[in-house]
Simulated scan of single mutants.
Amino acid sequence: MEIDSKKFLEIMQENFSLPIVKTSLGEGIKMDCLGAFIFSSVTGAGYLDNPAYPFTPKGLLKLFYNALDYKFVTGLFDNTTIKNTPYNLSLGKKFIFESDKIIIPVEFNSERELQAKLKKFFSEVSNPTDYIIQRIELSKKGNGMEPFMEYLICETMKKENYIVESQIPLSHREGSPDFGGYKIKSLINSNISLNKIHLIELSMIRLGVKRNKLQGEKCSSFIVGEAKTSTTEMLKQLNKYLNTKFFDEGFEIHPSKNVASKDYLNLFTIDSNNKILLIRRKSKIKLFDEKRQKEYEDWLSNYVKYYLIANLTNDEFDRFYQDYNHKQISSINDIVKFVNNLTYEEIFKKIREVL
């Protein structure tokens, strides 16, 4: 099964009960602005602020190159400056969080064809930034819909109490997994409810994202997945991720695959009625190593702190640092040492002060 415009609409409506609305460019899915920002961040679908280059935050909110390391990639931070946070983006592009959005799947065979469609639609509507364009690239096998599958598994596994993320940092050798989910014991045991949420949403508390109360969880759990739409071959790459010994479970993510490649893998797919189907692994073989997973968990427990810090402006963060250290920030190492030593409660206290 290839996901075209019709399938896209049916999947979104069937699984998330989102309304379908009509526009002159075609039918679309109506979504609140916060959810639409996550959708755009994961899928790369673009806000129609510019028909030639629709804006997407995809890739702008990255933090580290690799797991177990604290080397910044330009994203949330640019050297020692807080940069591409949702709040900062909203100051320059106020339309992002101003109203509900309509996500329109647009099929095309060439960039020229897409540009013609978007320019025409842009000229016809009075509020083009209320629309987000989901590209359906008919010239590609699988229609280029792997990021959409990443979005679907993120939204699904959020409901199972995970902090979820797409295109997660791992290592240059193993690559970047398409999906990761984290249950972090230090968070579970804290007074802060931070699960059942997309990682990016941790940086959107200032903008109105609500934290979810977590019940019934006692243990850490870490899951990883590889998404494909153009091929059903995911095993080799997924095994690379699992060989790190960080993860409890692995997921093959594909819109029409029927059986997982190995009995120790889960399969995330879509059935003939457009319902998301999660086929659990048959084998409960242990995939992680306690020591390796503990190293990963310790790193993750710090990793999420930076997304919480991203609720602050650069000036607010500088003052926060100076109040604690009685000096100015002079290097990335200063930031890393400071943030890693903060408790979640200390960070939330500071966030509450600026709300």
Rank of each mutant, 00 (worst) to 15 (best):
K120H: 15
F108H: 12
Y307V: 00
A116P: 00
N273I: 11
F246M: 08
K30Q: 15
V224D: 12
K284G: 09
F8Q: 13
E98D: 14
F16T: 03
D4W: 10
L61I: 00
V73K: 14
I104P: 09
T313H: 01
L48K: 13
L25E: 05
G59V: 09
S171L: 13
K284C: 11
N88A: 01
N239H: 02
N84K: 03
F121A: 05
I163V: 14
K94E: 02
G181P: 04
E201D: 05
N243E: 15
Y131W: 07
I276G: 08
K262I: 02
I96S: 07
N341H: 03
S40T: 04
D323F: 09
S330L: 14
E124K: 12
K58Q: 15
M31C: 03
P105D: 11
K7C: 10
D318R: 07
L34P: 06
K275S: 10
G180F: 06
R280D: 09
Y296N: 03
N109A: 11
I188S: 06
N258W: 13
C33P: 03
I136M: 15
I285V: 14
E14A: 02
S220N: 08
L118R: 03
Y307D: 00
V304N: 10
D271H: 01
K141G: 01
D78G: 05
Q115P: 01
L68K: 12
R292L: 08
Q237T: 02
G180P: 01
D4P: 02
G181I: 11
N340A: 09
I132P: 02
I184W: 15
I329C: 03
I168F: 11
L48Y: 14
S220E: 10
K117W: 15
K159D: 11
L202A: 00
K62E: 15
L61D: 00
V73M: 14
K30R: 14
S283C: 08
F348H: 07
R280I: 05
F108T: 06
Q215V: 06
R292K: 10
T313W: 00
E316F: 01
E155R: 14
D178Q: 10
N314W: 09
Q293C: 05
N109T: 05
D318A: 02
I197K: 12
K245H: 15
L242N: 07
I188V: 06
G75F: 15
S126T: 05
E14D: 02
G75R: 14
T129E: 14
